[in-house]
Design a protein around this nucleic acid. Structure first.
Lengths: 193, 193, 193, 193
DNA sequence: GATGAATGAGTTTTCATTCAT
DNA sequence: AATGAATGAAAACTCATTCAT
């Protein structure tokens, strides 16, 4: 860990927690500083502004997701297994970082103008991975050509995300395996017998 | 329109706009009042608090969605067509009120503790409609029994919601028909050929 | 009871309660109206303003005290028994209307400029009764001439008032007789054996 | 004066003035800040709330009174002179800080529930000093045993307080010596010849 | 006479940001 | 590099008062 990280890391972790619990607006820099055990000024020294701290967080989070997804995808050699891997990794990510994902969904997907280009870049960056897979599947002939690629991609992201959040946040008990199998089953072959 | 509505309606409409544009926290009562063309005190006289105004909005919105969905469902006589109707109505609703739905998703589905019981009641109220249909389908034998009902319901809600928002908010051009058909196709028979 | 009183009385009683519980500033016209079971406008129709309602209350209260005191004083024929009567009546009054007296002490005696002439007239009106008795006592030769009349009067008012309030408001149990005897004993012959 | 005091002191002094002139409710944090020559936020940074600022003031004031009283009491060796000292110090205190005392009387003694425990602790703290002296006097045999201790204590506090305030606030001219002697004379040997 | 919906000036409080140390 | 006291703009909310009905 380099010198810069020594201060940045505790801030990062405290920020995730506070933003998750309170949402962007309700979270205060004071509380983040206190939980990180550093002075408020230090946050401004390192990140410049609350907004920028938040964006760094989101960026870092999505990067980790992207990295994990891309790594797993690279290890498979057909669209079907690549998509299965994507679902598994994304679900796992939502499970591991569900409070972060809550923020992601409500603050980044929920808004449009507020986070401007940066949020938009983050969003479309991840989506293009899915889109590329869908398109590849059409070319390979394993995915129905009549499906709209954009809709299919966001539908996949949405079904995993909302289902995951709903399970992880609102239900006390749930079977991770059941969720995963249900999602795969629906996405690949639909609900009908 | 009775007397009570004379002042309440303009507040309602202004509130929807402002909350949609800014989100709950960023929206100010001052702006809502100004846009409604009434004094700020009038909002407090009628709604008691900003939070309560927002909740009334959400409640009214979900009620309209529920009413529309239930009405269409009642007119069909099997699970497949009922679910098709639900998808159609929900997509239509997201199309008609997309800025309202953005708030809905980010403020009500995005948070847990913040809106407490009322938001929770609203959320689970709508979900139980979907769950009942899924369960009925399993009984009828047209839906795979191995699917987890809860996951299936939230997956459906999520795929429609996120796809709709993504299309309606971020894309300039989109085909409503394509989105609808894609969603139905995925949900009922999956993406695979 | 004449027509005017039919509306004024319930307002009066509700006002006493609310002002006593909350103090002048914290008391709201809304609450007074609600407790009186009439519309807010009616209070303004009858009293013109919150301040005026309050002042009417104080005036009426002091008038009752003055009347009771004067009546008892008139029935005695020497300063000693007149003063004893005054102490008894004032203590009784503070016991009967202790919440009203709390307001009296804190809002009228506690302030100077706020209630201006009217409060001042009320205050000095009651004080002059005591002063006259003290002076008469000096002339009669039963009261020490070296005592400052003004100081003696306010000291008497203060010892009764504060003692009464302290007993009636802060102590659960107290003996009315003990308080009365203690006050008389101190005022007439001091604490020393 | 340490660093903390550099900003706290001007706030303190401005607050005393404003609260004394207006009373707690009518006083505004805006005015206190303006008179202290600092920003409004600084008051909240240092005291947290208007209520807390007020309470700190009262606490500090009573502490000074208590300290002064205790110091003088300790220097005397019998109840009579101790009580004389108490009367002198309290009267002096009311003379020096009469505007502060006005607030003290109306906001702390006038209310019950509003300032809750803290105000109650302040009140009973001071009263127990007087009570202890009275009880000691009874034991010593110099004070009449038939007097109720509680009533005697509050009567003493009340006669000094109300007399002082009445003189210092409402009369243009008064003799400090006359007031002091009159109070002592009444309290120890009563008004009668 | 009585009402109560509407008002808007005025208050407390919060908090991101700055900057002297 | 790091700090944290100070700031001030902005926001939610209150409530005495008015006035059309």
């Amino acid at each position: 860990m380099d010198r810069e990280q020594r201060k940045r890391l505790p801030i990062f972790e405290a920020a995730i927690k506070v933003f998750s619990e309170k949402g962007f607006e309700k979270a205060t820099v004071d509380e983040i500083a206190e939980r990180a055990g550093i002075a408020k000024g230090t946050i401004y020294y390192n990140y410049g502004s609350k907004k920028n701290l938040f964006l760094s967080l989101i960026e870092e989070g999505i990067e980790r997701l992207e990295t994990a997804v891309k790594k797993e995808i690279a290890r498979r050699n057909n669209v079907r297994t690549k998509l299965e891997a994507l679902i598994t990794v994304q679900l796992q990510f939502f499970d591991d970082y569900n409070s972060f994902c809550k923020v992601l969904l409500s603050e980044v997907w929920g808004r449009d103008t507020r986070w401007e280009e940066k949020a938009e870049r983050i969003r479309s960056g991840y989506f293009s991975i899915i889109k590329d897979l869908i398109d590849a599947g059409k070319v390979e002939g394993v995915i129905k050509k009549e499906l709209d690629t954009g809709t299919t991609s966001s539908a996949l992201f949405g079904m995993i995300g909302i289902a995951a959040l709903d399970r992880f946040l609102f239900e006390k008990e749930y079977s991770y395996e059941d969720i995963l199998n249900t999602l795969k089953s629906i996405f690949f072959s639909g609900i009908e017998k």
